[in-house]
Nucleic acid binder design. Structure first.
Lengths: 139, 139
DNA sequence: CGCTTATCTGGAACCATTACAATTAAAAAA
DNA sequence: TTTTTTAATTGTAATGGTTCCAGATAAGCG
């Protein structure tokens, strides 16, 4: 299908741009993140990956995830010191962590926020990125 | 001195309120955090603590820090998945993480921000707290 | 097709934190 | 004050997520 072709092309381009190699493992891990955008941990990705690729190793899953982050295709999400989660949503957004279920949700946040935060910085501080984690309960 | 007395009273009250016991170790660890508000890790607190109390153990430092968090006297600060840091600033603020030096700074943020974030939440989401981490370079 | 070298793999190593069991010491009771 | 109770401290072992390593495999260029 066209959507899947686009995805593959995007992955190929991003990897080529960094001078790295296209591998089945990288493609498979990327597809897992794109198919179910539920902020899985490396271990959860490993479990899903093995279903269609039983020979993949946990080390490779970590390697692939690092590569995807490096290629700006996915982002890491940190909740306290829990296992790192992975998020393929590249638009600027915050994360909501439900204290009851442990789930993580994407929350859009207005453009104005970024500016507001920057305007609050003392001189001499230069911002590269903001991570906003909202803790609470959903439903 | 009066300032130190106030501090001690505050610690005693907070601990008593939770029905816990006042110990030299807890007092010592609390003083370390209050004296130099530079967001130390448990290990850094351990190093400082041993200078005046050579017999204190790392396990105790972790226990004391947990207690202080429990008693709402200090807060944990998380930067990516690095070691947990501890912050005695209880007012609502963000943290700035300098990518060059690794230092963490407190950044005030306007009341309006909290409201703004809450107003952005879809219905069914209830916020307890927000953690804002600004990544960038200072000086 | 062959060659070079990045990537993959399984397992060992690492590091922050937690768990545990024995010892010590708050602080309540006598 | 002394005794008693039991929470807190201590040193060490265990845990869990992640990284490191060395050998095997496979991209992708010529």
């Amino acid at each position: 299908m066209i959507a899947t072709d686009d995805r593959k092309t995007r992955l190929q381009d991003a990897i080529a741009r960094k001078g790295m190699r296209y591998t089945k493992q990288r493609e498979h891990v990327f597809n897992i993140l794109m198919d179910k955008r539920d902020h899985p941990t490396a271990d959860e990705v490993f479990v899903r990956a093995r279903r269609k690729m039983p020979s993949i190793s946990l080390a490779t899953v970590y390697n692939c995830l690092d590569t995807l982050v490096e290629c700006d295709l996915v982002r890491q999400v940190h909740v306290e010191r829990e296992s790192t989660r992975y998020c393929p949503n590249l638009s600027e957004h915050a994360h909501f962590h439900c204290e009851k279920t442990g789930q993580v949700f994407d929350i859009d946040f207005p453009e104005a926020f970024r500016e507001g935060i920057i305007s609050q910085l003392p001189s001499g501080f230069e911002m590269d990125a903001v991570d906003i984690l909202i803790r609470g309960k959903s439903n």
